[in-house]
């Protein structure tokens, strides 16, 4: 029997004891699966991603990723987990302002193992930024910054890719490029979990996790949605 790569059991997250961002969320994502997380603004999508990325801890429940119980990891182990197992694409594209595009990608390499300018440049070329490597974040458009973040998330070949609205800021053409990359990653066996508002994009996934007020709605088959 195959173990789920990502396994959440009854995860609840309260902020300040008032706001319940996640409410008894249980979730399974198997190796190689592509899951789309959908839901209204404020429904807890980013919070869910943060739990899986070991960036945040649940108030109750358990989070198991690739055989590691994230609740019981030390800070040092959580850092190791982040740099070795997951690639993160943030909703707001965080880049170091005083580093160029290629240097931002290299930073992830440096924390992981060793910076390699050639490899970093190649990753930027793949997301269509071959001409923009030496530019600083302030000299890039929102969509370009988003793609730098993507190149950075993929540079260390992580097992799990977590993306928060990766196509939110892209025009149709760039969206196509990015989706092709995701399909390619999916084909090569990476496990994908990404947040989207767009049903067009959500339906390209193997399964959809629908969140509403921090709760997972009963799963419904993607095929049914596709046929609408």
């Amino acid at each position: 029997m195959i173990e789920p790569l990502i396994l959440l059991k009854a995860v609840t997250k309260d902020y300040n004891g008032k706001v319940r961002a996640l409410d008894q969320v249980s979730l399974e994502v198997y190796p190689g699966e592509w899951a789309a997380v959908m839901g209204a603004s404020g429904s807890g999508k980013t919070t869910l991603l943060n739990m899986i990325a070991a960036l945040d801890r649940p108030t109750s429940g358990s989070v198991r990723v690739d055989g590691e119980d994230l609740l019981f990891l030390t800070e040092e182990d959580r850092a190791r987990f982040r740099r070795e197992k997951v690639g993160l694409i943030f909703q707001q594209f965080y880049l170091i302002p005083y580093l160029t595009a290629v240097e931002n990608v290299m930073l992830a390499q440096y924390f992981h193992s060793m910076a390699d300018a050639r490899e970093a440049a190649e990753a930027l070329r793949r997301v269509g930024l071959g001409e923009r490597m030496g530019h600083y974040p302030s000299e890039l458009s929102g969509g370009e910054q988003q793609r730098v973040c993507m190149a950075r998330a993929l540079i260390n070949q992580p097992k799990i890719i977590l993306a928060d609205e990766p196509t939110g800021n892209l025009d149709a053409e760039n969206e196509k490029t990015v989706m092709e990359i995701f399909h390619d990653l999916h084909r090569r066996g990476h496990t994908l979990l990404f947040v989207t508002h767009d049903p067009q994009i959500g339906t390209q996934a193997d399964k959809i996790v629908k969140l509403e007020h921090g709760r997972v709605l009963p799963a419904f088959p993607v095929k049914a949605l596709r046929s609408i």
Partner: peptide, 16 residues
């Protein structure tokens, strides 16, 4: 602090 948070999110540990 944001820069530090980002580095941590990218997997930087206390040593880095």
């Amino acid at each position: 602090r944001q820069e530090i948070g980002l580095m941590k999110a990218l997997g930087a540990n206390a040593k880095h």
